[in-house]
């Protein structure tokens, strides 16, 4: 029996339909956690990297990827956990950032993930915040941090000082 295997591009498109379980407006590919898709003979190999080490959604994400690919007829599948290079918010796609903002979550500020801590420390010593976190509702940059941790490990809690709305910020690291 000969079977035509779907192309790697096709699989990328399918995974673009798998939502993140905690932030369902973005997909696992928007989030940048799918690192590699390849065929090993007739086995499909999908490499996934965890966002945060203890992220409780990791197992759910694996299951969601698996069941979605099963629905598209993939029979032999291997999920690989890949640690390096470690995930940062720099891996979130532009489309993912736009979707987050529309959903009410301030997206990560581009380019600050890799050295956010050092800058934050210098800025704190100088008595100011390094990050311009825009309110996802009114776009004001006049915002303040309420708490370093929010509703999930990947978010912090902020408040807009103009429209007074509290909001989640997808934190940088």
């Amino acid at each position: 029996m000969s079977v035509t295997l779907p192309s790697v591009n096709q699989v990328w498109n399918w995974l673009g339909e798998v939502p993140d379980p905690e932030i369902p407006v973005i997909s696992v590919t928007d989030l940048g956690i799918v690192r590699d898709i390849r065929w090993d003979g007739d086995t499909l190999v999908v490499a996934v990297t965890p966002t945060y080490s203890g992220c409780p959604a990791t197992a759910v994400i694996d299951l969601a990827i698996e069941s979605h690919l099963r629905e598209h007829g993939v029979r032999k599948l291997r999920l690989e956990r890949r640690l390096s290079p470690p995930w940062t918010t720099d891996w979130v796609t532009q489309e993912g950032r736009d979707k987050l903002r529309e959903y009410g979550i301030a997206p990560p500020v581009d380019g600050t993930a890799s050295d956010g801590r050092t800058i934050a420390r210098a800025a704190r010593l100088a008595g100011r915040s390094n990050l311009m976190i825009e309110c996802p509702r009114c776009r004001s940059a006049n915002t303040e941090r309420i708490s370093q941790f929010g509703s999930t490990p990947c978010k912090a809690s902020y408040r807009c000082k103009d429209c007074l709305e509290p909001f989640d910020y997808f934190k940088c690291h």
Partner: peptide, 15 residues
């Protein structure tokens, strides 16, 4: 379900 039949094996890509 197909899932119960052939659950994806998870491995790690290791240096």
């Amino acid at each position: 379900t197909a899932l119960a039949d052939i659950s994806a094996q998870e491995t790690a890509a290791r240096p």
